Simulated assay, not measured.
Amino acid sequence: MIYKVYYQESLSEVPVREKTKTMFVKSDSVLNVRRSLKDRNLNIEYIGTVEGAYMDYEKENEDFKVLEL
C-alpha cells in the first residue's frame, strides 16, 4: 500500500500549513510507516492511504516519488 505522509521538518516547531511537506511511502501499515520514519525526527501530522483515482492524480505530479522503507 502507498501512504502519503504530511509532516513538518522540525519536532520543535508548531505545525503550519504553509510549511507542511509531503512524502509517499510504500509499506504494509501505518504503524510500520511511523516506525520507519521515527529516526528522522519529523513532526508527522497525518498519514493517509493513496489509492484509486487519488493515486492516478498524484502520479501526474512530477515530484511523485515513492520511498520503500
Rank of each mutant, 00 (worst) to 15 (best):
S10Q: 14
G52Y: 02
L37Q: 04
S29V: 07
M1W: 05
Y3D: 05
N61K: 14
E60Q: 15
S29R: 08
L67P: 01
L67M: 13
M1E: 06
Y7A: 07
V33R: 05
G48Q: 03
P15A: 01
R35G: 00
D39E: 11
Y6D: 08
N41D: 05
Y46I: 06
M1R: 11
Y3E: 05
S12A: 10
P15Y: 01
M23C: 13
K38C: 03
Y6S: 13
K4H: 00
V25Q: 05
E68I: 13
E60D: 14
Y54R: 08
M55K: 15
L37H: 05
Y57M: 12
S29H: 05
K4E: 14
T22Y: 09
K19N: 11
E9I: 06
K19D: 12
M23R: 11
K59W: 07
N43F: 03
R35L: 12
R17M: 06
S12K: 10
E58F: 10
V33T: 01
S10R: 15
V30W: 01
K21F: 01
Y57T: 13
K26W: 08
M23A: 05
L11W: 01
T20R: 08
R40E: 05
E18C: 08
E51R: 13
N32W: 00
L42F: 05
D63A: 10
G52Q: 04
V66G: 06
E13S: 13
T22H: 05
L67V: 02
Y6H: 11
